[in-house]
Amino acid sequence: MMAYVRLLVALGLLSLLLFVVSLLVGPAGVSPRLSLSALIFGDAGPLTLVMREIRLPRAILGAVIGAALGLGGAAMQGYLRNPMAEPGILGVSGTAALGAVLAIQTGLTATFALALPFAALAGAGVAVTLLLFLAGRRGGALTLILAGIAISALAGALTSLVLNLSPNPFAANEIIFWMMGSLADRSFLHVALALPFFALGACLILPLGRGLDSLTLGEDAAEALGVRIVRLRVLLVAGVAAMIGGATAVAGAIGFVGLVVPHLLRRTVGAQPGRLLFASALGGACMVLAADIAVRLILPDRDLKLGVMTAIVGTPFFLHLIYRTRGRG
């Protein structure tokens, strides 16, 4: 118990530190003291504007989206009892991306600023409706995985079709860059859009910790322990879909965070799925904040995409996971 509390405090402090560092990194190159005083006390000057309207929403989104990805990954792994599961397995990020791509392609994004995130949310909504229809009441974990794979494949194919038939190379370019995932140039409008979905998802998922703990014994034993499996599955799918839909809508597809973070933290929480929820939320926030700092430090003038960064850092961890589990039956 004490070790767990210490872990949460450590992860909380680390994410706070990374949050502050994230506020201090940018092309403006102003000293930390000046930046922070402009942020907190404020004046009519341009530095206050930069801090409050550009860097603050970016740092908040980094923390929120990271937490959503970490929590979503831990929830999916706990429910499916599989360390290879990740939130994208539901197909929600795929359909959200499809929605966004359609918004870019049709030129809706040019007519009003939030068309893209709204279209992405609509895409996520379609996926979650299909999922609950296919795997809601009856049908266990396997149906859910298969439904998710089918939805992902369809969304991927339709996205490719849009790119394939795109008459406009600029739109195609924009689509490809958007899909790499980024937190650059986001505003408080984006924060206001993503935050309610994250809050809703977290409220649905965090109380499921005990049920996920019981699922360690398998669905049958968990149900006999009083866990209402159908209710748990519906709440979990809805929660993950809300968070991942919201995250994809404002930041594009950011891979590997939901896969790697729960895996990294599993041993430190004694592998208990309930504890892993909180820890992974904080760990995900740390990872995305750190990656978003890294993209700004490594290639400051090339707009290195966040999703590219997390995948490049995440893949070696994934290979490490395969290396360690190989030969363990």
Binding site: Y4, D213, L225, A271, Q272
Partner: peptide, 25 residues
Amino acid sequence: EIAWPIPVEALVALGRTPHGASISR
């Protein structure tokens, strides 16, 4: 089935969940 590498004592404590226990506390 034991899905995760959790300590024996925590696994057995899952039997206490119908009585309102959480294996973390």
